[in-house]
């Protein structure tokens, strides 16, 4: 496997000042750059590359693209060949097309989301450094998230007309980009329709997830926190700052994560996520959730799916 991790996500926002205030003072990110077009680049304190979130002023919310970092430059040539052989158009963009990033591959996955692969991004270091570091830095803001952990993307899904881009994009990520399937939700009379998948390219339960919905979109981007206590405190901070919380602290059955779902000021869903659940491995047996237990899979305590989970997204 040579895709290492989620590198960054580019999110559209309706009001850039409100958005920066949220991502800095609620999520605890650090602004590292503003480009001439007004896009704002941010990183978390525990991340070492230049940025992991790009906020783009727009007249609508949602995601412009998601980018994954591969291990070496040569991997880009390998993936360019494999993506092309899979029948997907791939464009190689020169270094600097994405700010502070080396050459990159740009393509659309079968769920219509734009994705980049790159091997190099400017190194700036974490806030605690690499020599005798303290466990956390002073002056953390908001929830003080460690890093951007994963994203969940909504994928066109309509089994009555035979559309299932969840299954298509999952196959693409596994067969072409070397991710492996960790958990899935299977629905339909025979339980053979893949409604949702969680995939890893590392040792964590998910580096990306896909859920079926009416149209392609962004369900959420998630930030890693250390512990359940941090999740509780994060919810306190959100209430103090009048952040719209979608789902208060709770456990996911799927991935075993501790979660809060909340929204940025443009309505893009964020998550604070703690608890690395288990050691994900390519040979770990895939966990399957059935349609009748979907509620418990998503929200383990209430065992009820809230309507907003599949209808409210950008």
């Amino acid at each position: 496997m040579s895709v290492m991790r989620l590198g960054h996500i580019n999110v559209r926002v309706l009001d850039i000042e409100e958005a920066v205030d949220h991502y800095v003072n609620v999520n605890g990110m650090i602004q590292t750059h503003v480009d001439p077009l007004g896009n704002v680049y941010l990183k978390c304190w525990d991340e070492w590359d230049k940025y992991s979130v790009v906020l783009s002023p727009s007249d609508q919310a949602g995601m412009n693209h998601i980018a994954y970092k591969v291990k070496s430059d040569a991997d880009l040539d390998m993936y360019k060949t494999r993506i092309t052989e899979a029948g997907i158009d791939v464009e190689e963009v020169p270094a600097g097309t994405l700010e502070f990033v080396g050459r990159a591959l740009k393509f659309k996955v079968p769920s219509e989301h734009e994705m980049y692969l790159y091997a190099e991004k400017e190194y700036v270091g974490t806030s605690v450094g690499t020599t005798n570091p303290d466990p956390w830095p002073d002056d953390l803001k908001g929830v003080g998230a460690h890093w951007v952990d994963h994203a969940l993307l909504m994928c066109p899904f309509d089994p009555e007309t035979g559309v299932n881009t969840v299954a298509e994009v999952t196959s693409f990520m596994v067969d072409v980009l070397d991710f492996y399937l960790v958990e899935q939700v299977m629905v339909g009379p025979d339980g053979d329709i893949q409604l949702a998948t969680w995939l890893s390219c590392s040792n964590t339960p998910h580096d990306i997830a896909f859920v079926g919905g009416p149209v392609s979109g962004l369900h959420h981007l998630a930030y890693f926190l250390d512990s359940w206590n941090d999740v509780l405190k994060a919810a306190d901070i959100m209430s103090k700052k009048r952040v719209k919380i979608d789902v208060t602290p709770q456990r996911h059955g799927i991935t075993r994560g501790y979660t809060i779902y909340y929204f940025d000021p443009s309505g893009n869903r964020n998550e604070t996520f703690a608890g690395l659940g288990y050691l994900a491995q390519p040979d770990r047996p895939v966990t399957t959730w059935t349609e009748d237990q979907l509620g418990a899979g998503i929200f383990y305590h209430t065992r009820e799916l809230v309507e907003s989970f599949t209808t409210v997204y950008t």
């Binding site: 919310a61 719209k244 929204f263 309505g267 907003s308």
Partner: peptide, 11 residues
């Protein structure tokens, strides 16, 4: 109907 409270989701 209540959704994202940010003018983004449209519900």
């Amino acid at each position: 109907p209540s959704g994202c409270h940010g003018g983004g989701c449209g519900v």
